[in-house]
Design a protein around this nucleic acid. Structure first.
Length: 811
DNA sequence: TTAGGGTTAG
């Protein structure tokens, strides 16, 4: 006589299971409720859902154990609705009664809170909630579905808690970002003298990094080594993750190196650790190791990989990775992976490729939109970024979150889209996001950069002041408006309130001092930054210092600083020196700065223009020719000048000489009318700013086609009288436009604010009271000399050069 | 004869 029970229990493969199944049927023993249930369990254990379901259907009598196994089998296959349907059939059609085993598995099948609560009340009605397995399952389910309060309640109501219940509570808290509470629960567990198992360890470890408590992590590590828990795979994985997130990559690597076997999670944790720390090449190397070891990458691996490639900035690797992801079956419905690809292209400065990847995604969530907005915004396509935000608004089911506003507000700030920014501010108020420190900081920055310093200050005063962000934003804002003293006094206030300044604070502060010509204050800040605040200056800080000393004419001191700086000077540092050399006419030092710049940043036309300008000012025409031919040789083209003005919440962009605006003719008419009035009260066009060697009336037209004029004219004709006009220009405003704008502000009785690549110009009633007045006066004092030189330049080269712009295409 | 609780995420 065959002992079917024993053989069913010990059967390990499907190949052995099938003959047993047949034997049961022919011998008539299948009718035995215990044996048919054992067969079902066997199929369920071996993961053969169809056979399990068939066995279940044909079993003449169904014990509650059979029902339980069937439900469990569905859950194991992720068929949650089938599992719940099976449970309901058990309730409604079977004479069997659910038991304490039924509920844990059914609770596991609940995929939303409503269902979970219904099953919870059924478990209560059947009297099983007091079972420790059932209640621990409830704790787990509520945590999984994000209802941490219900989880805590279920946990606290448990009359008896075993280690599993504590573990469920710990991991639930960790997964719902309640690290502090998790640590409290853990402490309570230790106080009660409960033992720590490997599950406990891997549940509590994720709380260490968010709590900044490396000490706790290390203590647990020591405990694990002592009790032999450290060889467990789950435990090791949790340690890698904990160390990596605490910034201890060496420790993470040590754990990784000591592991006997590794799984997908191991590789993902270490790769993402290196990627998050910015050690991109190590992350990519580990990915190769992972492939060699035969572990198949999953979506999380791909997310880390894409992010690593985005950081390394190498678009060839980017394309390779994208190709790899496509080949290895990137599920196009996987929104997280899709978002990572969009982000990768954005970081590689490939806004178009980002857009394509975005368009290909069938399911887009709010993160997809945020990522695309950021991709455009960070690649200088601010207008497009705002348009994407607008089209996002019309999508159903997609509501802006913190990250959305934090990506679109800088775009508004960049093009000076004040009305759009204000609309977004309104939205932030309605959704309560304006009290978010990050959003508030962006709002302060936006108002300051859009020329509304009062609003920025007002908003700053309402923001909680513990964080450094808002302080940095307002200090920078005061800086670009030329209010160096106010920036300094705010900095003192910041220290009095105990807010710790960071690297960014000092960049804002130093540039504020630089713009206002406060050299001594700037120097003191630069010293304090190192001695008092223990911050080592970066290339950015040195660039500010060089700019400050250079503007003040202390070129030797500026050069001295560069020669002795401990970090490698970048293009911003040398660029600041070159700019100062141009102002003060130091050709020799300028040549030196350029030689460095042409090595570090050979593609930047601005530097060629600056150098050529400087040669022209000094009358060194050979130098001018040399620079021009160098630029031509490198196939560089001038940066097109453009200005933007916002009318009716829409950003209008005008390119210098551009005729593509639909109301171009009207704009020209407006400009002609203005010009006549300007001339009648004493405006004389300054043709020295015209670059082409053409007839006088043509010159007049060229000046009138500068992008800022087009934008101003459009602003005047499209808004009601008295409305201030705000312009953003990507390059610096030319001297003639600066003068003309004074006249326009007088004639039209408008306040005109022009923000250029350097700072703000406030025009009102025929004057300009901006921070730059001083500098402009400086350059206009030598106006006559400039004009003479430019005339000479024209004679020699037939084309002259304007600040930051080369007249005709270089190629 | 059946059961719960564990690590990685844009």
């Amino acid at each position: 006589m065959v002992d079917f029970g024993l053989r069913l229990l010990s059967c390990a493969t499907l190949r052995l299971a099938r003959p047993l199944h047949a034997l049961l049927l022919v011998s008539g023993r299948f009718d035995d409720v215990i044996l048919s249930t054992k067969l079902l369990n066997l199929y369920s254990r071996l993961g053969d859902l169809p056979s399990a379901a068939l066995t279940f259907r044909h079993a003449p009598t169904k014990s509650v154990i059979a029902w339980n196994s069937m439900i469990a089998c569905y859950v194991r296959h992720g068929l949650l609705p089938d599992a719940l349907a099976c449970f309901h059939r058990l309730l409604l059609t079977s004479s069997a009664r659910p038991d304490r085993f039924t509920f844990p598995v059914t609770i596991k099948a609940c995929w939303d809170l409503d269902r979970g609560k219904r099953i919870h009340s059924l478990a209560f009605r059947f009297g099983f909630v007091w079972n420790v397995f059932v209640s621990a399952s409830l704790v787990h389910m509520y945590s999984r579905l994000g209802s941490i309060d219900d989880a805590r309640k279920a946990f606290e109501e448990m009359p008896y808690k075993d280690q599993g219940s504590w573990n469920a509570m710990l991991s639930g808290l960790c997964q719902n970002a309640k690290a502090a509470e998790a640590a409290e629960v853990f402490e309570e567990m230790m106080t009660l003298g409960l033992p720590m198992g490997k599950v406990t360890v891997s549940s509590i470890l994720p709380a260490c990094a968010p709590l900044n408590s490396l000490l706790l992590g290390v203590a647990i590590h020591v405990y694990c080594i002592k009790h032999g828990l450290d060889s467990d795979l789950f435990v090791s994985n949790a340690f890698i993750d904990m160390y990596a997130k605490s910034g201890r990559l060496e420790e993470a690597q040590k754990v990784f190196d000591g592991m006997a076997d590794m799984d997908l999670v191991t590789w993902n944790s270490i790769i993402s650790g290196y990627e998050q720390a910015g050690e991109v090449s190590s992350a990519l190397k580990l990915f190769e190791g992972m492939k060699e070891s035969g572990v198949r990458p999953d979506r999380l691996t791909l997310v880390s990989l894409a992010s690593a490639v985005g950081q390394c900035g190498d678009d060839r690797t980017g394309r390779t990775v994208h190709g790899y992801i496509l080949r290895r079956g990137w599920d196009s419905r996987d929104t997280v992976v899709g978002n990572a690809i969009v982000d990768m292209y954005g970081k590689l400065s490939k806004a178009e490729a980002a857009r394509e990847a975005f368009d290909r995604m069938p399911v887009k969530d709010v993160i997809s939109w945020n990522t695309l907005i950021t991709s455009y915004s960070q690649n200088g396509l601010a207008k497009e970024a705002i348009e994407i935000y607008e089209s996002m608004q019309s999508r159903e089911g997609i509501a802006p979150i913190q990250g959305t506003l934090a990506s679109v507000l800088p775009a508004c700030a960049h093009v000076g889209a004040l009305q759009q920014g204000m609309k977004i501010h309104g939205r932030a108020v309605r959704t309560g996001l304006q009290s978010d420190v990050f959003v508030a900081t962006c709002l302060v920055d936006m108002y300051a950069k859009c020329g509304r310093l009062e609003e920025a200050t007002h908003l700053f005063e309402q923001v909680p002041r513990r964080h450094t962000g808002p302080w940095n934003a307002i200090i920078a804002g005061l800086g670009v408006h030329g209010h160096g003293q106010r920036a300094l006094s705010l900095f003192s206030e910041m220290q009095e309130e105990g807010v710790k300044p960071d690297q960014v604070t000092f960049v804002s502060l130093l540039s504020a001092c630089s713009h206002a010509g406060l050299v001594d204050h700037g120097r003191r800040c630069f010293e304090q930054m190192q001695t008092v605040h223990g911050l080592s200056p970066s290339a950015k800080h040195y660039a500010c210092m060089v700019d400050m000393l250079g503007r003040a004419g202390r070129l030797d001191a500026a050069y001295e600083l560069i020669a002795t700086m401990p970090v490698k000077p970048d293009s911003a540092v040398w660029g600041a020196l070159l700019g100062a050399c141009r102002i003060h006419g130091n050709v020799e030092l300028g040549k030196l700065a350029s030689s460095h710049l042409f090595e570090i940043d050979a593609e930047n036309v601005g530097f060629y223009v600056l150098l050529s300008n400087m040669y022209a000012k000094a009358g060194e025409w050979d130098g001018v020719d040399e620079v021009r031919s160098l630029a031509r040789h490198r196939r560089l083209q001038k940066t097109p000048g453009w200005s933007s003005v916002e009318v009716n919440k829409k950003v209008n962009v005008f390119f210098t000489g551009g005729q593509s605006h639909p109301r171009y003719e009207e704009i020209q008419g407006e400009l002609r009318a203005l010009l006549a009035k300007m001339k009648s009260i004493g405006y004389v066009p300054d043709y020295s700013f015209v670059l082409q060697d053409v007839e006088e009336d043509e010159k007049e037209h060229i000046l009138s086609s500068h992008s800022e004029r087009l934008a101003i004219a459009f602003g005047i004709m499209s808004t009601s009288p008295g409305t201030p006009i705000r312009i953003y220009k990507n390059l610096r405003v030319c001297g003639d436009c600066h003068n003309a704008t004074k006249f326009i502000s007088k004639i039209t009785e408008r306040e005109i604010v022009v923000r250029d690549s350097n700072r703000f110009h406030h025009f009102r009633d025929g004057g300009c009271s901006c921070g730059l007045t001083l500098q402009l006066r400086d350059s206009s004092s030598s106006d006559m000399e400039d004009k003479k030189q430019i005339m000479q330049l024209k004679l020699k080269t037939r084309v002259s050069i304007q600040e930051e712009q080369i007249a005709s295409p270089l190629v």
